[in-house]
Amino acid sequence: MKLTLKVWRQKNATAKGQLVTYTIDGIDGDMSFLEMMDMLNNKLINEGDAPVTFDHDCREGICGSCSMFINGEAHGPDRLVTTCQLHMRKFKDGDTITIEPFRAAGFPVIKDLMVDRSAFDRIQHAGGFISVNTSGNTQDANSIPIEKENADNAFAAATCIGCGACVASCKNSSAMLFVGAKVSQFALLPQGEVEATNRVLNMVKQMDEEGFGNCTNTGACEVECPKGISLENIARMNREYLAASLEG
């Protein structure tokens, strides 16, 4: 298949970027989107151009680094997949594909399609952990009985890979789905109870300081999330936050 690509090119964080048009031929429907990008980069290198910088690591949908905004949607038109899992068969011969970096004040562009998502790390550092003694006398997790429903919901929340598609998709650049998932995965388990109050207060405070927007409950994040993280996690975070504020 032959495609026209409009790719955001930006030399560095402060440079003014723009969309640059490339044509590429010989794309197979079984290729992943990143393999297509590899082909483009090979071509650019052969022609003496600078390759397009983009984040990627696992290429199997678990690291969350392959942030691309494709034809107006985070991770492209397919549902429940990351860019690395997006197949080129979702596109047709002759299509034009627009590829932009994730856009948010909290995710500044580093170069081309690569953005700095360390704001998510700082939110995690603010409270996305539990303090347990790991020096040899940890209690076996299986010895703590947990209600099946809570265990399932905690697991579902914990599948968030921190990709940032929720922020990228939201018209407000809100990070509520990510933070909601990270709060929920502990809020549902007894191990998380000890630090519950400070966790939600500190993580939300950090989220606000990083310049992410507010939630309007549009639900765009849930639709675009490659892991299907549910809006219920935002409601849980709101409950936790209200309870913590009244307490603290």
């Binding site: 018209k171 927007g213 507010n214 639900g219």
Partner: peptide, 26 residues
């Protein structure tokens, strides 16, 4: 605040693909 949270906008943004019109135009 929400506008400030995305200082540089997208060239192509398909809002209708994932959220109802009413929610995007409060």
């Amino acid at each position: 605040q929400n506008r400030k949270a995305r200082p540089v906008g997208y060239v192509e943004y398909k809002g209708s693909a994932n959220a109802p019109w009413t929610s995007r135009n409060m």
